[in-house]
């Protein structure tokens, strides 16, 4: 049995199809990355999975309960943490823990036990009387996650959890996510940081309400991107980019810092042609021309553009 089973989940607002019959499964204890541009339908999908937005059609089963028929039961099975810090800034750390513990039906002995755990995880042992507003961003984020799982749910949703947090705190935060996953909690996470997506066991890419790719980071890079990516280092980068983007034999051109990435069908033909158009026809010096392992960013840009072109037709 899967931890999350999504079956043709659809949400229509008026005439706008926000989520268009998506289906996927998530294993227990998996870190599931849900990626997509703003407005792709990510938030709508998460809201449906959390039982706060009723699907137009289709269904999802979370921890054995249907979001269509038993949204209240679903809510007891999940934890949720959003990009917007949603603990009470005007309460102390302990008061926040007591409140959310109370909301999830924890009291007395059990509450004390979980309180200890939350304080430890958030690096706040012995500081439970601090006002939440006074905590640094990274600590707040850890506290929010720890409180989101105070009732030990089997599934936790993290909606862009690391927005606005420094890189070290982000790294620590992902260690915490890994710990949760190892203890058997299914982690459903959305993010804009593609380096974070690499930590996910499965990545699903959504665009315009449809899933356009799914798989592990390695699978995405090999399965979907059959072309070769060449990295060109040369002088006059701007004019070189201009020239290359006009070539019909290049599927895609993009700029990464001072380098140009081009997407070609055949590595050897590509090398010859690049040299020909840049050095011979336009006398631009190429200092380096390498085949590179594509990054997730390469894959996503390729997939999204392909999908946009398909939608445009």
């Amino acid at each position: 049995m899967y931890s999350i089973e999504v079956n043709k989940l659809t949400k229509v607002f008026g005439k706008f199809v926000a989520v268009n019959g998506i289906s996927f499964n998530v294993n227990q204890g998996e870190i599931f990355g849900f990626l997509g541009a703003n407005g792709a339908g990510k938030s709508t999908a998460i809201r449906m999975l959390c039982g706060i937005l009723e699907p137009t059609s289709g269904d999802a089963i979370l921890g054995g309960y249907s979001v269509m028929n038993q949204p209240d039961k679903v809510k007891t099975q999940i934890g949720y943490m959003s990009q917007k810090f949603s603990l009470y800034n005007d309460l102390t750390v302990e008061e926040n823990i007591n409140f959310f513990g109370g909301v999830y039906g924890l009291y007395n002995h059990k509450l004390e036990e979980r309180k200890k755990w939350v304080l430890k995880v958030a690096f706040l042992e012995g500081q439970k009387h601090l006002l939440t507003a006074s905590l640094p961003g990274g600590i707040k984020q850890r506290l929010a996650l720890a409180i989101a799982v105070i009732h030990e749910p089997k599934i936790v949703f993290l909606d862009e959890p690391t927005g606005g947090v420094d890189p070290i705190s982000r790294r620590n935060f992902w260690d915490l996510i890994n710990e949760l996953s190892l203890s058997g909690v299914t982690v459903f996470v959305t993010t804009h940081y593609l380096d974070e997506a690499e930590f996910c066991n499965t990545i699903t890419l959504i665009n315009a309400g449809n899933i356009i790719a799914s798989g592990s980071s390695k699978e995405l890079k090999t399965k979907y991107l059959t072309n070769t990516i060449l990295e060109v280092e040369c002088d006059k980068v701007v004019s070189a980019l201009d020239i290359l983007s006009k070539q019909k034999w290049i599927d895609e051109t993009s700029i990464f810092g001072n380098y140009i990435h081009i997407n070609v069908k055949d590595e050897n033909v590509g090398r010859i042609l690049v040299k020909k158009v840049l050095t011979e026809q336009n006398s631009i010096n190429i200092s380096r021309l390498d085949k590179i392992v594509p990054t997730l960013e390469d894959v996503f840009i390729y997939l999204l553009e392909k999908d946009e072109n398909k939608n445009a037709e």
């Binding site: 959390c50 039982g51 706060i52 209240d72 809510k75 007891t76 999940i78 949720y80 959003s82 917007k84 810090f85 949603s86 603990l87 009470y88 800034n89 959310f100 909301v103 999830y104 039906g105 989101a148 949703f157």
Partner: peptide, 13 residues
Amino acid sequence: RGTIEQINVSPLT
């Protein structure tokens, strides 16, 4: 303040 979101996803009616 957005705290309502956390309450919405909880079993609280």
